[in-house]
Amino acid sequence: MDNLFWLSDEKILEKFEVELNRLKVESNAKATFLIDKNGQLIGSSKNTENYDKTSIGALVAGNVAATGGLANLLGEKEFSILFHEGENEHVHISLVAGKLILVVIFDETTSLGLIRLRVKKSLKVFEKLLRDLEKSSQENNRENIFSDITEDDIDNLFNIGGE
């Protein structure tokens, strides 16, 4: 089952969120998110209910993938920081150990300089947590929840409308 990405250690996941919150508060940002390179959400700062996180995940991951492809084309390993500047809202995107994506959304109440400074500090924390997470996934062999499911279980998933 090596093609699975397990998020199994709740204590570590909580630490990710603590750091996401600290980053948000200390940089005076509006929201912070951590996603994987496929766009799956790993954590977010508090009070982010109004953000469509699934869409943000997919678009940011696509964005990072596209600029990563561009980097390769130019002989760079990656572009580790992306910045999008809007009229009111800005997005700062950075890679955590090349594996996860940190997204910071902010506005005029703070500055890019402060965001960059605080992100740099947080990246170190996230990198350490990521190592812990990887270690813990190796150690904890979770039960295979799929092992004894039946055709019926699968059919039952599909009561979603359609025909």
Partner: peptide, 28 residues
């Protein structure tokens, strides 16, 4: 059971990068 459908398309509606749609199914 669904999120937003995102289409990154050209002005003539050809897919430029991707379409994306999240779907929530039942539980296992």
């Amino acid at each position: 059971l669904k999120g937003k459908m995102i289409s990154l398309a050209t002005e003539t509606d050809r897919t430029l990068f991707f379409d994306f749609m999240p779907l929530k199914l039942g539980e296992i």
